[in-house]
Design a protein around this nucleic acid. Sequence first.
DNA 1: ATTTTCGCTGCAAACGTTTGCGAAATTGTT
DNA 2: AACAATTTCGCAAACGTTTGCAGCGAAAAT
Lengths: 328, 328
Amino acid sequence: MTNTTLKKISEILGLSISTISRALKDHPDISDKTKQRVVELATTLDYEPNANAINLRTSNSKLFGLIVPSISNSFYNSFISSVEEESRRNGYSLMILQSGDDPSIEITNLKLCRQNRITGLFVCISPDTVNIDAFLRLKEIEIPVIFFDKVPESNDCNKVCVADSLSATIAANAIINKKKKKVVALFGNTHLLITRKRLEAFTTTINEKVNKIKLITDYAVSSAQAEEAALKHLKEKPDTFFCMSDEILTGTMKAIQKKGLKIPDDISVIAISNGDIPKLYFPEITYVETSGLKLGKLAFSSMMACLGGSTFIQELTIESLLVEGESL
Amino acid sequence: MTNTTLKKISEILGLSISTISRALKDHPDISDKTKQRVVELATTLDYEPNANAINLRTSNSKLFGLIVPSISNSFYNSFISSVEEESRRNGYSLMILQSGDDPSIEITNLKLCRQNRITGLFVCISPDTVNIDAFLRLKEIEIPVIFFDKVPESNDCNKVCVADSLSATIAANAIINKKKKKVVALFGNTHLLITRKRLEAFTTTINEKVNKIKLITDYAVSSAQAEEAALKHLKEKPDTFFCMSDEILTGTMKAIQKKGLKIPDDISVIAISNGDIPKLYFPEITYVETSGLKLGKLAFSSMMACLGGSTFIQELTIESLLVEGESL
DNA sequence: ATTTTCGCTGCAAACGTTTGCGAAATTGTT
DNA sequence: AACAATTTCGCAAACGTTTGCAGCGAAAAT
């Protein structure tokens, strides 16, 4: 049993292939009677058009590529989820590839995308990706590329990002408003632009405060390291923890639970997060939201704008907002 | 600037298209000198073969479809992650679609897969999917279908599952060994085979025990519902909670934290989980591991077996093991 | 010198669509 | 009845590959 094709239908009905093709897409040239016969047979034969043939013929794949370091990450996850949904809604398919933060796999993935003649690409580059020429070359063949989250520094490309500096500033201001006195701020990998931006915005905002807040900063590149760091700094009796990311937050929370501290009576916590993790705890953790869902929607609309003919290169950011739990 | 094709290369080099095609795939018929010229030009022209044309011609898409209720779920996530990796390693691409537990979207996704002439399909059906004919029809056109995790009851299909009954039995035995007396067991959607299996295995194992354990079972289809249920049953002073899934676990944990109970002194907890969530808490939650990664690898090898010609219908399970935290 | 062999290359069909163009059948107009 | 207009349909080319087969020139064998 093989796949049904236009040819097969045409032979059964004694009509030409082109008539079948037109009938199935409700072309005005075809009479209603014929259309009906064709549609009927097509459904009983379970006809599904061959996307490869269509793409080849029309050179319009209706397929987006998406390259991301890892799909098992709550932020990327929600990003992907929303892009996938938007794509389907708009009649596009999505090909999702993960690079594992390996630039060479990134290139392999890019090749795969090109071979499948994607209509557009969403990509979050790995920290070690220095040369983005391969990506920029897509533009020469008129394939829009939207960089998201971790974006290259080049000005010559479309980017959508969360507001790194702003979100850290919002968190800092929330801490100031609550009149906290001694803050331990934990950050991630200092190689990343995102860390440096958040670090700078956070410390400047805190230090701008007139009656000084005591600020202790530290770094961790894993949840376990964050736990250690938090345990260490708990000895200095801070009243607040600021966690730059979910990874840092989970480590910090383990330290707090380990010490049997009550939130927010014994210690306050605020984080920058996608929102999933903070809601797991009781009381729920106050966080500055950097929504993967929203970023996905923004990326998608940016993509559609490019496909609509906009050659305007732009860098977009989604605003952050404070989601108040009861941890601060 | 348009895409490079074999034709373009052939015209520049004054060779035929077939020669270019053969040269690029190192066919013995072609002389080394010619091969070298061709390969050289192809790389400078950034040639990438058109996958659509190849698929059309060879009717072998090297593309797998994967339909899952949601990609933002730690279990499916690790499943997808491992299938994606295996696919890439073996020269296949992966098209990931989410159904949002909506059977009609599931059908849309299935159509998309068929239109793209996938080589095989991995699918986790939604709880409301009653009719799986559309999936079984793929087998008639020789497209292997591997059902995973939430699988239909039909015997006429390939399934890979976590050891549902076994994992629940292991959890029950762990509870028995710890000499618990009063257990609240929370389960998910009763429409699902997985729920019924776990329910049955758990209750029988508990009830086999000579000196009776008091067992209270309840159901919840969301984390919030689980929290409510846990809160309700806490009034009956159980000494142990059994949570069938991560979703149930997070709800239960919120209830426990809300009441300020200490684990394991005031209350014990054991869950069936992928492992990510249990490790977020302190003390870490004891769980029976059902690994998405392992299931992914199993599903993939099962797929490869089908493609290798095995028509042997089988139901495979990955074994579970108890990962001891300090919550029991 | 003729045949055989062998290395290299090209021809052409096929995969399943879409679509411009022309042709036949039907209808309407005078 | 003759012709124009309209409706309905088919032809054939094209998209970019792969691949069986045949062709051709030159070296090797007879």
